[in-house]
Design a protein around this nucleic acid. Structure first.
Lengths: 346, 346
DNA sequence: AACATTTACGCAAACGTTTTCGTGTTGAAA
DNA sequence: TTTCAACACGAAAACGTTTGCGTAAATGTT
């Protein structure tokens, strides 16, 4: 087992100083052709590679991006990561991942762990619990310490930083308009509690779309799902809530769900109740994941372009990191959504 | 914008030496009660946190684990990551992720990038291209440099390192036995080309199960899918191949697919051909992801317990890293698979 | 009073780099 | 022969820590 070779070892072996080796390897003109060749040959032979940690310490930058997301077993978030990774890698950065599991304290701890020198900046999406508690001190402190943050998807407006979002309200309108246009008269929405920012915005879009078409919203058609985070029987209770929605609204002919799971579950319930999709009831979801694509019938959905979100977030962060002038002008980039029509609508 | 405070700054401010500050913060008995209090109060006030990079350099360990996987937008791999992350975090490690995208060169580059001091050890699953080329020099070199590796799922036996796998052959037998027991007489397998280790093993299990029941395998029932990696029309051609399988074997009454996608697609094709599941044909998949759970009918599948795999891999790696004695005894841990029965079998 | 022992702190090295500056050795110009 | 620039290299500082060791002052022991 041969340890990684260092400048010092090369220097000793070749009987020159460390500085000479370093300069030789970086092709400094200070070093004679002779020594340069000798050093480079030796370095190549022993497969010398500069130690990243030492460089990080010296340069006070790590070339590493920290990602904090609520969950990784999730099509949207993993898409975003893949986008971040692609851009980061191309620009010479690594990616280090922290999971909050939707918990405020894990989010804080993870950020503190990474903020102490391990990374140059954050890309993150906020935990539900944080959104609920509205405690954002850890973001503010991080930014105050000169570490830039880019938020995506679940963002908080009060924080001054770059953001990458989709126009949630607009995407929702897209979906609801489509349903209306397809002849739906009684459209339900299956959404989250209001503290989840994206849920709230999508609900808003739903309401606006109805209003645009002079349809007055009915509260019985609006289901804000109780989400006991990650609980085992979450799925069952979700199904139950949706089933009640169906039973209380016999004339319902369209469902807009703010995520894939809700949409899939709605379809399942509809089928159980003997309703045909899209003949009796049409369904549109949000987020274009595997479930939508492979569901039966395939789900019409609003695509968020997760990968593009990740790419843009990475670009914003790296641009910020590599910007010379230190003026903080923060951008909010909106990635356009797209309605992908499949079989769950007419 | 206040930069992070360092020992040096505290020392200057309090007019003591850096060593005194360091010792005071670590509660050394060398330092008087007075100074200790003073220093600690000051440090708390300014929210001092030791710089991770400096510590890494000094201690020659980073408390960071490198993960290299072929793909992140994939239920199994993200499950594994979540398992790794959970254990790593609990034991004070961070997790840094590299994606190979199934490409040999990206795998090599990513590993080199991380091996230069950024991490203490690897957890990885091999890219298809690497399996195909059978070029493993980068693993060997990494290990020779004293950096431990844990391989999971797609492993290579020749490399001396810890491994976490499922008993693929056994899992496949489990599935095929179930099909036989449910009355299937003509069971097809939809699998990968042989160079994908897990595909090969699962095919093997399929054959063994047949043999155990004195059923002679028919080559027309064995479909080794052409996988043009990540190509756009991959899905279409997959569907086509499976459709041909069905058409060439009219008496087929069971399908074992070595992954979720193949299984789902098989069901889709079956439905298209007017076959009822599970009445006319029964289907079992491998890997228990969202697709299986939410498919219609819900898919009976062999669960791999991805999270458990990740947890175990992290444990092995960290144990190795923190082991005092340097003897290399390598373990291969087998995580038991489990047949999850749902609606696609009788 | 003389010596021994604590006590409380600072110095310096080490981790592996890069880079500024200084310096001894050339060869050439004066 | 003297002077000076060019050349080729080394010393040292810096990034932020931890820690073994040295030591001055304070205290304790005869």
């Amino acid at each position: 087992m041969k340890r990684k070779v260092t400048l010092k070892q090369i220097a000793r072996e070749l009987d020159v100083s460390i500085s000479t080796v370093s300069k030789a390897l970086r092709n400094s003109i200070e070093i004679s052709e002779d020594t340069r060749q000798k050093v480079q040959a030796f370095a190549k032979l022993y497969n010398y590679r500069p130690n990243n940690i030492a460089l990080s310490l010296k340069n006070r930058k790590t070339q590493t991006i920290g990602i904090i997301i609520p969950e990784i077993v999730h099509h949207f978030f993993s898409k975003v990561i893949s986008g971040i990774e692609a851009v980061a890698n191309k620009r010479g950065y690594n990616v280090i991942v922290g999971l909050s599991n939707e918990s405020f304290s894990k989010e804080v701890i993870n950020m503190e762990m990474l903020a102490n020198g391990s990374i140059d900046g954050f890309i993150l999406s906020i935990a539900k619990e944080t959104q609920q508690q509205q405690d954002y001190h850890h973001f503010i402190e991080t930014i105050n310490q000169g570490m830039p943050i880019v938020m995506f998807d679940r963002v908080v407006n009060e924080i001054k930083c770059d953001k990458v979002i989709v126009d949630d309200a607009d995407g929702a309108k897209l979906a609801v308009n489509k349903l209306i246009q397809c002849g739906c008269k009684n459209i339900a929405i299956v959404t989250t509690k209001d503290y989840v920012s994206v849920g709230k915005l999508r609900t808003q879009g739903y309401l606006e779309a109805l209003e645009d078409h002079k349809i007055s919203p009915k509260s019985s058609l609006i289901l804000k799902v109780h989400d006991q985070l990650l609980s085992e029987d979450h799925l069952d209770s979700l199904e139950l809530e949706i089933e009640n929605l169906f039973k209380n609204n016999k004339n319902m002919d369209g469902v807009f769900a703010v995520n894939e799971l809700y949409a899939i579950t709605a379809m399942k319930v509809a089928r159980k109740l003997g309703l045909k999709i899209p003949e009796d009831i049409q369904v549109i979801g949000f987020t274009d994941g595997v479930l939508s694509k492979h569901a039966v019938p395939a789900l019409t959905t609003v695509s968020q372009h997760g990968k593009k979100i990740g790419e843009k977030a990475a670009e914003l962060l790296i641009n910020n990191l590599e910007r010379e002038d230190e003026e903080d002008v923060y951008e909010t980039v909106v990635i356009e959504t797209e309605l992908i029509e499949r079989e769950s609508t007419k």
